[in-house]
Design a protein around this nucleic acid. Structure first.
Length: 510
RNA sequence: GGCCCUAUCGUCUAAUGGUUAGGACGCCGCCCUCUCACGGCGGUAAUCGGGGUUCGAAUCCCCGUAGGGUCACCA
């Protein structure tokens, strides 16, 4: 709402609208050095939501200027995770677009061109200081309690001298000339105006000795060339933003509007890491978390859709999302709430869709074949329907179906102690006998037979129902007993009940 | 250490100078019931501390404190 207001009162350029298209353009720029992190996923989602809400373009760019750590496997996995989450890109790898290529490793000539331009304009200069020397200076500065800034040894070298030494084969990097007085103001949609003293900035490196641009340089060149209007990224970049503003100025373009989203912390308020359990999208996927649920949870981490809403679909989120309402403080992630949201989506998923998800697992366990008969499918569908609301993740579903395919090999210990009394054996036998006459073998009919036996024996319902469940499934929890019995079928029920009766006679203590 | 950001129940958050500080997860209790789960009802629990400004402060300002980020030829 407020954004729309401002667009009408302020000129588009300063609002970050793309000058020529008047369109919002955002980007998500992961580096392929590992799996897609949930923090990254949330940043990607916020970018995606912002683009969708404003009819803009969502660009995916791969920041792989780090030759050492970038891997093809990570690259693929990140694309895969994003697609799984339903975060699709309008421009980027495999989709391409007018400002490609979208992998920085394929844009080297572009960066070199921009570097040469800035070099020509003396906005950038070659630096011949060795990393060792710089590290030493840095350490000394730290020991003496000074800010570890570049001393500017090479700042005064003439262009001729720079060229001469480069031609002579001297290893070199390039640094950006930065202002040492005045202030740099970063406009941040979430935090307002953040002011930095320019004396905090030194002439930082934009081009590495190995012939690759640094992250800062490549990122800004690309944001400029790709006409990015809003940079929505993690808070860890806020302190780097003055460098980026300096870079945009050097490149001669208006800086984009920034929005630094708060970080996601582990339950102990430290930075999220492996030891905190699942941190990547891929891991949650393996744990049976649904993409809709993960994306819903991520939205709630740092954003409130209002009206006390908790369950918010992608489409609703597009409507409700507002960058200015994103929280300023870091959020601790809470697996319990994720699971609750996941449970909601699982419970609302159709049995068929759930079956699709777990089918490979069912086949792997030999519980079904690749091409089941129509009745088999209907039967499975019903079993899933009963199990559905008792699980929080898709992952746990197959185990909950086990007893439909395998007779119990043992009985839950606590349950057996409680429900398998010496007198139960006879009752189970009697109940098994009664089942023979039940026609048709439906839930209503079976229950009727059971209730009448219960009444004949003069016992309470639970005295027969609980032992029967244990006899049939081996456990004390599960769907309504009569539904389970119908799915199991008369013969199987009778067999399992008689086997349990025998087990009791051998094992039950009086 | 310098600079920057942040601070409401255990956790995610609402409240944009006036509310008995609201909702959700979790936890506890009750109801439903053949168990479990779902669902329903109820409960537990918070404005980091200290100063201002104001008739009135969770909200604005200052100072502390705490947490986080950043100061790389990593991104």
């Amino acid at each position: 709402m407020r954004i729309i207001l401002r667009i009408t009162t302020v000129d588009k350029e300063s609002m970050g609208m793309s000058a020529e298209t008047g369109q919002v353009r955002v980007r998500f720029a992961p580096s392929p050095t590992g799996a897609l992190h949930i923090g990254g996923a949330r940043t990607a989602y916020f970018n995606w939501l912002f683009a969708r809400k404003h009819g803009g373009v969502f660009v995916l760019r791969i920041d792989d200027t780090d030759r050492q750590r970038s891997t093809e496997a990570s690259y693929r996995q990140i694309l895969d995770s994003l697609r799984w989450l339903g975060i699709t890109w309008d421009e980027g790898p495999e989709v391409e677009g007018p400002f490609g290529p979208y992998r920085q490793s394929e844009r080297l000539s572009v960066y070199r061109e921009q570097l040469d331009r800035l070099w020509e304009q003396d906005k950038v200069y070659a630096c011949f200081c060795s990393p060792e020397k710089l590290a030493e200076e840095r350490e000394q500065a730290q020991r003496e309690g000074r800010a570890p800034r570049y001393a500017g040894h090479c700042a005064g070298l003439s262009l001729e001298e720079q060229r001469r030494r480069i031609a002579a084969g001297e290893p070199h990097a390039f640094r950006l000339r930065t202002a040492s007085t005045g202030q740099t103001v970063v406009r941040d949609v979430i935090r307002g105006e953040v002011t930095f003293d320019n004396r905090e900035l030194d002439d930082f490196i934009v081009w590495k000795t190995d012939g690759m641009p640094t992250y800062h340089f490549a990122s800004c060149v690309d944001d400029a060339l790709m006409h990015i209007t809003h940079v929505i990224r993690a808070e860890e970049h806020l302190s780097n933003t003055p460098r980026h503003v300096a870079l945009f100025q050097a490149l001669g373009v208006q800086p984009p509007v920034f929005a630094h989203v708060p970080m996601i912390l582990a339950p102990d308020r430290s930075k999220l890491s492996k030891r905190h359990g699942a941190t990547s999208v891929e891991e949650y996927r393996e744990q049976g978390i649904l993409p809709e649920a993960l994306v819903n949870y991520l939205l709630l981490l740092g954003f409130s859709p209002g009206e006390d809403r908790e369950i918010v679909s992608r489409d609703e989120a597009v409507q409700l999302f507002d960058l200015e309402r994103v929280a300023k403080h870091a959020a601790v992630y809470d697996v319990k709430k994720l699971e609750w949201i996941n449970a909601h989506y699982v419970h609302n998923m159709s049995p068929d869709a759930l079956l699709d998800q777990i089918w490979p697992e069912l086949e792997g366990r030999g519980w079904t074949g690749p091409d089941p008969a129509r009745e088999q499918l209907a039967w499975l569908r019903t079993a899933v329907e009963f199990a559905r609301e008792r699980t929080r993740t898709v992952r746990d579903l197959p185990d909950m179906l086990r007893y439909y395919f395998e007779a119990p090999e043992s009985y839950d210990e606590k349950g057996a102690r409680k429900h398998f009394r010496p007198e139960t054996a006879v009752r189970l036998q009697a109940a098994a006998d009664r089942l023979a006459d039940v026609r048709p073998f439906g839930a209503v009919e079976v229950e009727k037979a059971f209730r009448s036996l219960i009444s004949d024996l003069g016992i309470k319902g639970g005295d027969l129902i609980h032992p029967t469940r244990l006899a049939l499934t081996g456990v004390t929890v599960g769907p309504g007993l009569f539904d389970v019995m119908v799915l199991l079928g008369r013969d199987e029920c009778v067999a399992r009940m008689r086997r349990a009766a025998q087990w009791i006679e051998l094992n039950a203590q009086s």
